[in-house]
């Protein structure tokens, strides 16, 4: 125990002395830390990942639920994303069933949000006169969350590196005010910056640890589990239980807990998809059920919070 504490203390001490020499061009983790530094300096809350399996950073309550209501909210965090059907047993240089997104949520969207974003790219080593940066139309819609927004996919020399969205609706409610959401594809960006063609060759840090060292075996085993092993009867059961628990939480007036169950149901559904046991028409019905859970949770959350929001922001109303 004492040694562990010592090493933590050492790291903490060491970190402050190496901050200036972060090397986002040669280290995946330095790239993340650089983004943390950047967005922290912009007044963002730097959060840790949500401790649940989810398909996208947007599912994080810091994005979905905080996009509701009038209160300002600025946050940045890494979110591991699980996409069971994208698993390739560690054999594809680009596709992973588990990867990282870097999410920034700025509410209300600042008028210089594009400039801020471009500065953050600069911070991690992308010079916009050396690389062709483009904002290409890409509207976002998540029927599951009752949400949509307008924005772009940001291209760097033809590669999509970020999703940039102005949320217009969330949980079926108009966003008042609108939040700007930035979602960086961290592995892609790092591969680009490090000049690496295979994700597993990425340098995770500058001490010789590669992305493959960290994740290759996980990809192999998790791909096998996602596609071949996971007990489908248990998954169907889990789905039903998450659905029931979501309703239970809703009726008890704890919508955040309900929302977690919706996220759980969504991921279990993705696993069932990967196992190939959901037919086309069942698919629509399952998606409808997940959508109901997520929307009900958002609605219930908004309804629960509205008195507080209205009190703090006179004149504001949910609808």
């Amino acid at each position: 125990m004492a040694t562990a504490m010592e090493s933590i203390a050492k790291t903490a001490l060491g970190e402050s002395s190496v901050t200036a020499s972060r090397d986002p061009a040669r280290s995946f983790q330095d790239m993340i830390l650089t983004l943390h530094d950047f967005w922290s300096a912009q007044g963002c809350v730097i959060l840790q990942p949500y401790d649940m399996r989810m398909g996208a950073g947007t599912f994080h309550t810091a994005t979905t639920l905080r996009a509701l209501g009038p209160q300002p909210w600025n946050a940045a965090f890494v979110q591991p994303c699980r996409r069971p059907t994208d698993g390739r047993y560690g054999e594809n240089p680009n596709r992973l069933q588990h990867y990282y997104q870097y999410q920034v949520i700025l509410k209300p969207s600042p008028s210089d949000i594009q400039e801020l974003y471009l500065k953050s790219l600069n911070a991690i080593g992308i010079d916009p006169l050396a690389h062709d940066i483009r904002f290409v139309e890409d509207d976002w819609e998540s029927p599951t969350l009752g949400a949509w927004g307008l924005g772009w996919e940001v291209w760097c020399d033809g590669m999509e590196v970020t999703q940039f969205t102005y949320f217009q609706q969330m949980g079926g409610f108009d966003c008042k005010p609108v939040a700007g959401e930035l979602t960086y594809g961290l592995e892609r960006l790092a591969m680009y910056i490090q000049g690496v063609d295979n994700v597993y060759d990425l340098a995770f840090n500058t001490a010789g640890v590669s992305y493959g060292d960290v994740f290759l075996e996980n990809e192999r085993q998790m791909s096998k589990w996602n596609f071949e092993v996971a007990d489908t009867a248990a998954l169907f059961d889990l789905f039903a239980k998450a659905e029931a628990e979501c309703r239970n939480a809703l009726s008890a007036g704890v919508p955040i807990a309900a929302y977690e169950q919706a996220v759980e149901a969504s991921h279990v559904f993705n696993l069932l998809q990967a196992r190939g046991v959901i037919s086309v028409q069942e698919r629509a019905s399952y998606m409808g059920r997940v959508r109901d859970l997520a929307r009900s949770s958002c609605e219930s959350y908004a309804a629960k919070m509205t008195p507080e929001w209205e009190a703090k922001y006179p004149g504001w109303s949910l609808v």
Binding site: P70, P108, S109, P110, S111, G149, L150, Y166, Q168, D174, C175, K176, P177, V178, G180, Y313, W316
Partner: peptide, 17 residues
Amino acid sequence: MRWGAASITTESLRWVR
């Protein structure tokens, strides 16, 4: 779409971006 601080109401100006 709407954007920015003004979008605290749905009456705020709309434009393509």
